[in-house]
């Protein structure tokens, strides 16, 4: 009887020690879910989800405080992969009708109208606007994520969003369309 109890206690102590050691040794820093979610997001830092950037949104989604279908630039594709990641049912972005990913847009400053107030430079999340006080501003289109944050910031409404033109370097082969023969 006593031996049995001792054996069990010993076992419990040894296994407990192993578990305790493992929990310290293999501890994961941070929430790995946040990183996975953030990798799925398009990193436009636009704030259209209601959070100040992609990382805060990823943290909110991971902790269950935000729905996974709030990313407007990512559209349904991102919403779908987030829903899959979280194991919840997919809800289309922006209500029942859904939304595909928006065509890629970049901001454009009408340089004749620009007064050089630097308001847009301050709101650009990725520093894609160059210019100085009372001097013309311009957009670095390769860095612009198309977040549209600069559009309302401009006091003279000289910023518009322009679709990115497809040139030869950015051209993609289309999905081949062909009719399948009906099985007899």
């Amino acid at each position: 009887m006593l031996t049995a109890i001792l054996v069990m206690v010993l076992l419990a102590v040894v296994l407990g020690a192993v578990l305790g050691f493992a929990s310290i040794k293999f501890k994961i820093e941070g929430n790995p879910m946040v990183e996975k979610i953030e990798a799925t997001l398009p990193q436009t830092q636009c704030g259209q989800c209601g959070f100040a950037g992609c990382k805060p949104y990823a943290e909110a989604v991971a902790s269950g405080q935000a729905a996974p279908n709030l990313c407007v630039p990512g559209g349904d594709n991102v919403a779908k992969s987030l829903a899959e990641l979280l194991g919840v049912e997919f809800q289309p972005v922006g209500g029942a009708e859904g939304a595909g990913p928006k065509p890629k847009m970049v901001a454009f400053i009408d340089e004749n109208t620009c007064i050089g107030c630097t308001a847009c430079i301050k709101v650009c999340p990725v520093d894609a606007i160059v210019g100085s006080s009372k001097l013309m501003h311009t957009i670095l289109i390769n860095q612009c994520t198309g977040c549209e944050l600069c559009v309302p910031a401009c006091p003279v409404d000289c910023i518009t969003m322009e679709p990115v033109k497809t040139d030869l370097a950015a051209w993609k082969w289309r999905y081949p369309v062909f009719e399948l023969k009906k099985a007899a």
Partner: peptide
């Protein structure tokens, strides 16, 4: 690559 760059630039700006 563009998204990673945007993220880096955003974090640097912050």
């Amino acid at each position: 690559i563009a998204a990673d760059q945007a993220k880096e630039r955003f974090e640097f700006k912050k």
